[in-house]
Design a protein around this nucleic acid. Structure first.
Lengths: 196, 196
DNA sequence: TATTATACTGAACTTTGGTTCAGTTTCAAG
DNA sequence: CTTGAAACTGAACCAAAGTTCAGTATAATA
């Protein structure tokens, strides 16, 4: 085996490239990126990356990065295990937050929360909720609902009398729709961003 | 101007393709995707997409999608404005959660929270925190810290006596490091995922 | 009505992608 | 030391990407 960069190092380089450019480098670019002088070396590397699950072919045989390569965040278990050292960082797989949090991209929206009606559920004003439209809410789901011309976040509940919307804040009361009830969507995730 | 698909419709098709394949379609694929018969039609479309900011060229002239195209979530203001109708959905720009939440991808990790020491700050057990390593914490930042061989989440504070770690839970007390203090990283975002 | 800008078709051409083949270097195992 | 597997170089080749040019169809504007 000729002295060469280890595969994890190459994966790291590819990850950085993909993050910068939002695409895989071409053959010519990989020659420079990995210090190869032959296109067949790139060809062989791609075969190894495919076996390792970093790139995959579609039905037509076209190569594309997988979530394992195109992801942004490193996965880690619980903190107790300690933080990974810089040396082993390249060995940790990555995950895309988009793919982790969103099932139906065409139906998912971001909203900024501006009330405190769900604060006891850990949803604060200024938080961002990912809302999925066109899905029937199930009991205990948090929904975006229009009541009396105002949109709010509430727990969705059902009992003998019908649909009930419950806040997660002792200051507010449960609501029962009189005439109409508009469900904007179901909250699939909450995001709070610190700083900037 | 010949009757043709509107640009937003084409953007939508491209978005769906990029989400599926994690790459832009090639010229041949775009011919089928948009119903063109000439490669030069694709060439012209790419010029228009570039002017509209959906794709961009790097220094070497290579085309790649921008965040506006490669994003996953639709942006929306406050709920009060109402939800967008299906017709106008294509006009709304998208955002990538990865790019929105992560500044330094190479130094950012995901951790699952398994204590309640920050529950009054809206960080519950089972939540996920995005931790950025290698950044000096500033007062009021939430940090992942190792105290007495145990890792926990705490507010980072400084006073006359030195560094202090404050919980956001009346059940626990502030901590002052005796010998050593290890800061694993600064919490940049909190994520809570519902269902599955 | 003529004019002009835009979006296309179709063809030609150069560059790069993608693959195959023959041979070379390096290391580890027998 | 020999053998063999793995990673490479270098060359050849076809398909696809990417660009350019000449010309056509459509719709808004003067």
């Amino acid at each position: 085996m000729p002295r060469t960069l280890l595969l994890p190092v190459k994966v790291k380089l590819l990850r950085e490239f993909f993050r910068r450019e939002r695409r895989l480098p071409g053959y010519r670019e990989m020659l420079g990126l990995f210090g190869y002088r032959s296109k067949n070396a790139v060809f062989g590397l791609l075969r190894r990356l495919e076996r390792a699950g970093y790139v995959a072919r579609n039905a037509a045989g076209k190569l594309a990065p997988t979530g394992k390569l195109a992801g942004t965040v490193r996965l880690l278990g619980f903190v107790q295990a300690g933080f990974p050292s810089p040396a082993e960082e390249e060995l940790v797989d990555t995950l895309s937050l988009d793919e982790f949090l969103i099932r139906r991209p065409e139906a998912t929206f971001m909203l900024t929360v501006n009330g405190d009606s769900m604060i006891e559920a850990g949803i604060h004003p200024g938080d961002i909720v990912l809302v999925e439209r066109g899905t029937a809410p199930r009991p205990n789901d948090i929904v975006v609902a229009q009541v009396d011309d105002e949109w709010t976040l509430k727990y969705y509940a059902k009992d003998r009398q019908g649909v009930r919307l419950d806040p997660a804040n002792a200051k507010y009361r449960s609501i029962r729709p009189k005439r109409s009830l508009t469900i904007g969507g179901v909250v699939r995730a909450v995001i709070r961003k610190y700083g900037s």
